[in-house]
Design a binder for these strands. Structure first.
Length: 171
DNA sequence: GACAGATGAAGGA
DNA sequence: TCCTTCATCTGTC
């Protein structure tokens, strides 16, 4: 049983991100748009009027630190628990595989498909990347198409290019 | 059950 | 090279 989400903003040099937490962990991360404002992908119930539970405050500190590290092109040392309830086993496998990618390291959709044990499910990997609710921390930007082509990115290719450039990736 | 998709590989110009 | 076509697999409606 999942209760409402708690939304907490994360101010960075790139704008204000919005983290959504459930009682399980970090459930979603929204990117700022070109104006530095958050553009939520879906509506979430805000309970900011209530006191934020202590565990969520701890997770938020971890999320903030991790996000700033990744935006600086470095590895997120410690992540809060991630809430992937309601997601399929296949999607979770794809995201776990992406979590193992170090900054500056990239894989193709085909290589990720191999890691999850289904080398021909390359298109499905693309679909799972697009369904990733926690971009940046789950580094779907490190997954490129074959031949180092940029591929796609749900939050905008500009973000993908920018994040990869910070990690020193050439494509 | 049909369709779409952030792919990849092969073949032709 | 570049473009087109097709095979493949999964998620969503």
């Amino acid at each position: 049983m999942k209760t409402g989400l708690v939304e907490l903003p994360i101010a960075t040099d790139d704008g204000v991100f919005l983290a959504h937490y459930s009682e399980i962990g970090l459930a979603e991360l929204d990117f700022p748009n070109a104006d530095g404002l958050v553009t939520p992908k879906r509506s979430a119930r805000t309970v900011n009027s209530k006191p934020v539970p202590l565990p969520i405050l701890r997770w938020h500190r971890l999320t903030t630190a991790a996000l700033k590290k990744v935006l600086a092109g470095r590895a997120a040392q410690k992540l809060p628990p991630l809430d992937w309830t309601g997601k399929t086993e296949f999607q979770q496998s794809v995201w776990r595989a992406m979590l193992k990618l170090a900054p500056g390291k990239t894989r193709s959709y085909g290589e990720i498909a191999e890691v999850v044990g289904n080398p021909r499910a390359v298109r499905a990997v693309g679909g799972a990347c697009g369904a990733n609710p926690i971009p940046v921390l789950v580094p779907c930007h490190r997954v490129l198409a074959a031949n180092k082509k940029i591929g796609g990115f749900s939050s905008g290719l500009d973000w993908k290019r920018s994040l990869l450039a910070r990690e020193g990736v050439k494509f």
